[in-house]
Simulated scan of single mutants.
Amino acid sequence: MTASIIGTGQSPYTRHPHAGTDTSHVIAQAVRSALLEAGLKPGDVDGFAVSSFTLNPDHAIDLAWRMGLRLTWLMQDTNGGASAGGMLQHAVRAIEAGDAKVIVLAAGDLMDGAAFSRLVASYNRATEDHLAPLPMRGPNALFAMLTTRQMEALGLSREDYGHIAIAQRQWAADNPAAVYRKPLTMDDYLSAPVVATPLGRYDCVPPVTGADAVVLVAEPRNGTPRAKVLTVRASYNGDQQAGDGLETGLRACGSAGWEEAGIGPEEVDLACVYDDYPSMVVAQLADLGVMPAGEDASNFIKRHISTRDLPVNTSGGQLSAGQAGAAGGMHGLVEAARQLMGTAGARQIPARHAVVSGYGMVLYRYGACATMSVLEAGA
């Protein structure tokens, strides 16, 4: 592949957006920040893709016009947690085909209380017909059942999931953009209010308002820090909503992804996996092969994630930084690119390779979309 990320941007994440804030504003802010880091202007951009749940009634073309973009390639993705990987896959192909030279990928949402309530009530037809009438709205109850199933299958305890949440909060302490940075103890985690057994408060992502963006180009200027895209793979409707949720679509596309990237999961220095719940961190690490097949999951968590020997979601992930609607799918891509470009600040780690996964779009059971991207540091 011949495309690289050379700029990243993020609008401030906040639980309580100021009056007058709208989705277009927060996405545009992230785009401006990414272009500034890349040393580019809006006039340099000829490709744009966006993902958002709250951009309506506007569309990608409306937002592009508002930002002053004249384009030869345009895309709008609606696949939530898998949207960043989907947009990246299409953008890489567009660059390789010569359809665009400088592409900005962006995702974001205004996610205040009212917007979140509307989203979980009318996410899709399956939600409207079957989930919305239930006393507990949103996906928490579904993933509580999945978490229980995973605990039984892998011999995991609540403490094991606590180690994941605590480690990510430790990473978040060095991320000034994370909404939650206060240290989290095991006592805090275990004594938190129950949301849906066995899920407690710290197992569920907090909705926030914000946006993320990356700038993708074919050939960076010599010496420009970059995150080269080695592969992007995706799986949609991998189990046709008939599986038990313990495996994600990453299991179907992982082997081809590693083969195309030219490295194996054991060579990864950083994993940024979609963390709507700690159980999904475990599932994706296993499906990607980062947690080796046959490895005792509890032991892996204690030895590698809790100790931060394996950096996982070094921004704090969504569990501590927040989930800005559709930007949740872009959050890990931005963090991986920053680590590989050496712009992660106090949480910077030495990293040459990173894997990023996206997951989402709950239909009748669990996430129907999954993407994996492998990136490499370069200059």
Rank of each mutant, 00 (worst) to 15 (best):
A97I: 05
E152G: 03
H331G: 10
K228S: 07
E266W: 14
G329C: 14
A297M: 08
I27K: 03
D77L: 09
H90Q: 11
T2I: 11
S122M: 12
D276A: 09
P133F: 12
L333N: 01
G262T: 04
P57E: 02
V229K: 01
T8F: 10
A326K: 13
L142F: 06
A165R: 11
Q323H: 11
G322P: 08
C253I: 09
R93C: 08
E376F: 05
A115F: 06
G85S: 02
M330T: 10
T307D: 03
V217G: 09
G358C: 12
Y13K: 04
A213I: 08
E219N: 15
T78W: 07
M186P: 09
E295R: 08
H163D: 14
M291D: 01
N237Y: 15
L88I: 02
V232W: 00
A368I: 07
G322R: 05
G328P: 15
D309F: 00
E96P: 03
R308C: 07
T148P: 06
E159N: 10
W73T: 11
I95G: 05
G200Y: 01
G358E: 08
R233T: 12
L184P: 04
L363P: 00
A94F: 03
L190W: 14
I305N: 05
G210N: 04
A30E: 12
S83T: 06
A327S: 15
L69M: 13
L246M: 10
Y161M: 15
R352G: 02
A100Q: 05
C369I: 14
Y274A: 01
C369A: 14
N299I: 11
L134P: 02
P139K: 10
D22G: 10
G20L: 10
M87K: 01
G322E: 07
G43S: 01
E267W: 02
V205W: 00
A211M: 12
D203P: 03
P206E: 13
N222G: 13
T231S: 15
H59Y: 07
L319T: 00
L134Q: 13
R125D: 11
G223F: 15
L134I: 02
R251L: 15
T185A: 04
R137C: 07
D44W: 01
K101I: 00
Q168D: 06
V205F: 04
E376I: 01
A106P: 12
G345R: 02
A28V: 00
K41Y: 00
M87L: 01
V195P: 08
I95H: 09
M280F: 03
L146E: 01
G20C: 10
H353N: 12
E247S: 14
L270Q: 02
R158I: 12
P198Q: 14
N299W: 07
N222D: 15
A227G: 02
A3T: 06
W171T: 06
K228C: 02
I305H: 04
P225I: 10
F143W: 02
S33R: 14
L310D: 04
V104N: 00
A19L: 04
D174Y: 02
A114Y: 09
D112P: 06
T14H: 14
V334S: 03
R118C: 06
W171S: 05
E152W: 10
G138Q: 04
V362R: 13
